[in-house]
């Protein structure tokens, strides 16, 4: 399968192997280069948001389903890990997976209405789900400790590796990110990935191609939510607290903006979106609530001058 431009050095497998190798080494050594805890902390948040956005990109970028409920699945993962560790004395090791599975199951539940509810109405449904989740987390004091949230989640350790410093969390994040990237890449480069794209492009035509669009929409939504749960689990141990205010609608909006800015429907685009938007929110932290204004400006600028996003392939509702 020779593509156009295959003569360029960039596409030769040797070059790719070297490039990936270098990237891998840089990623491994990063905490040795950047020793400032504050900067490393920002990088950890970038990793966290990149995982979230990769999941959302599956839903929004590949399958074209607009979900404003991603923060709720993120929260489900966070609370699952927090409650499992604090209340039931679980070790950290199974928690990311279990948190992902909880988010996945709720994703299936919320994905079920996609059979009947389409487009904007589905979007409204996801907003409702996000709000319901947050209100339940706030009100169910016996289980979630209400608005105070669950605090004092102990330092996680995996097989004797105690994760306490920023650098440790960096490596934990990197492992989760690599897992996310590899699994999503496998999915996208199979008939499933193509089916999701077909649904985004033209649902009716997709069904005539033999794609069971109802099932595939549930699959993509649930799998996207799985990664949100994974990220939530990371947040819980990294922040050592989870509160309902971590998972507000604004968080969902921020993730959507990241995906749009990075570029929808491209595997690496969420990385770009995550980096740009996390740095922007950090940089403008001093002006507190006004920073959402600046984030809005960035998004409008991207939509005006590069509607497909930094790396994206498909323009938003072209």
């Amino acid at each position: 399968m020779e593509n156009i431009g295959s003569n360029s050095i960039l596409n030769s497998p040797k070059y790719k192997a070297v490039a990936y190798g270098m990237l891998f080494i840089v990623c491994l050594l990063l905490p040795k280069i950047i020793t400032n805890m504050y900067y490393l902390g920002i990088i950890n948040y970038i990793i966290l948001y990149t995982i979230l956005c990769m999941g959302l990109n599956l839903i929004l970028g590949y399958a074209g389903l607009l979900s404003f409920g991603h923060a709720a699945f993120y929260g489900l993962g966070g609370y699952t890990t927090a409650i499992l560790i604090k209340r039931y004395g679980f070790s950290f090791l199974p928690c990311p997976l279990l948190s992902g599975v909880v988010a996945l199951l709720f994703g299936i539940l919320l994905g079920l209405p996609t059979r009947k509810v389409r487009g904007d109405y589905f979007c409204l449904l996801t907003i409702a789900f996000g709000e319901i989740f947050r209100l339940v987390a706030q009100a169910w004091i016996g289980f979630t400790n209400g608005a105070m949230g669950i605090v004092g989640i102990p330092i996680p350790s995996i097989l004797g590796w105690s994760i306490r410093t920023e650098a440790d969390f960096y490596y934990l994040g990197l492992i989760l990110l690599a897992f996310t990237y590899i699994t999503i890449s496998l999915l996208i480069h199979s008939r499933f990935g193509r089916a999701f794209i077909a649904i985004r492009e033209d649902e009716l035509a997709a069904s005539v191609m033999g794609i069971n669009t109802a099932i595939y929409k549930i699959i993509v939504f649930a799998i996207g939510c799985f990664y949100a749960g994974l990220a939530g689990s990371y947040l819980a141990v990294y922040q050592t607290t989870v509160t309902p205010s971590n998972f507000r609608l604004e968080e969902s909006c921020l993730m959507i903006i990241m995906v749009i800015v990075g570029g929808m429907g491209s595997l690496l685009a969420p990385v770009a979106g995550g980096i740009v938007m996390t740095l922007a929110t950090e940089y403008f932290r001093s002006i507190s609530e006004y920073r959402m204004l600046i984030i809005g400006v960035i998004m409008v600028a991207v939509l005006l001058y590069r509607p497909q996003g930094i790396f994206g392939t498909s323009a938003f509702k072209d």
């Binding site: 193509r194 794209i197 077909a198 033209d202 997709a206 429907g265 392939t313 498909s314």
Partner: peptide
Amino acid sequence: RVFPNITVLENILIGLHCRIDTSL
């Protein structure tokens, strides 16, 4: 009703969907 934003080859591959039996 071709799928506009993907390549010609990818369009054809989507047409093959029901002949590929890859499971999750």
